[in-house]
């Protein structure tokens, strides 16, 4: 299988059943949906607001719908998708908890990925420099960042517990040293990106 997609995306494609309906919230340039269309024959739709990304999706033949996630997802019916995906966008939402509710209402299953703010690097940056972490992946100053709701893996799992959300799978990505060695030991301390497969069927 050819892989021209980000690591976190490649990792979660295993959780997507072939020939199902997939909604990608904040689908970016459409690479992931195109990949799923080609390799899993899914019927996919991506929501996006960035003009250039929308045009890239069109060029790739990906179904893209111009819609601002922060304006709600009330136009989608309950359980109208098999999987609702949101990668690296939870922290941009005005109310990540409500978006999560909507995702679990619309999809039978959900997949979310987000940068883990509980990572050693973030903790060390804050304690040593006394400043908000700025990394290569999250290269924004605090006042200009679109990432307004950072959370840690622990925070996220507590939210899932409170909301009665089932965690079907969890995966973490860690590429730097020493994260990649110790990520299984303490995902919240060493994980850089968290990947969750969720459902709320009961």
């Amino acid at each position: 299988m050819s892989r021209h997609i980000r690591d976190d995306l490649y990792m979660l494609q295993d959780w997507i059943t072939p020939k199902t309906r997939v909604l990608d919230l904040g689908c970016g340039n459409g690479d992931f949906l195109r990949f799923l269309m080609d390799h899993k024959q899914i019927l996919g739709y991506g929501l996006e607001i960035d003009r250039e990304h929308i045009i890239e999706c069109v060029t790739k033949g990906v179904n893209v719908i111009e819609q601002d996630l922060n304006r709600g997802l009330t136009n989608f019916m309950d359980k109208s998708f098999d999987t609702v995906v949101m990668t690296q966008a939870l922290q941009i939402m005005h109310r990540p908890d409500l978006v999560l509710d909507d995702m679990l209402r619309i999809g039978s299953e959900c997949i979310v990925t987000f940068p883990n703010f509980g990572n050693l690097f973030s903790r060390a940056y804050l304690s040593f420099y006394g400043r908000m972490p700025v990394t290569k992946q999250l290269a924004y100053q605090w006042y200009e960042t679109p990432n307004i709701h950072f959370c840690t893996i622990r925070d996220f799992e507590i939210l899932c517990q409170e909301k009665d959300i089932d965690i079907l799978h969890r995966n973490v990505i860690a590429e730097r040293f020493p994260n990649r060695i110790f990520k299984e030991l303490s995902p919240n301390l060493f994980g850089e990106t968290a990947i969750y497969h969720l459902s709320k069927n009961k």
């Binding site: 309906r21 929308i54 069109v58 179904n63 719908i65 819609q67 136009n75 109208s80």
Partner: peptide, 19 residues
């Protein structure tokens, strides 16, 4: 137009919608 796009998605048709 959003109503059109929503109905098409619900009907499982390929659709692109731009505003």
């Amino acid at each position: 137009s959003r109503e059109i796009a929503d109905a098409l998605i619900a009907a499982g048709k390929d659709v692109t919608y731009a505003e």
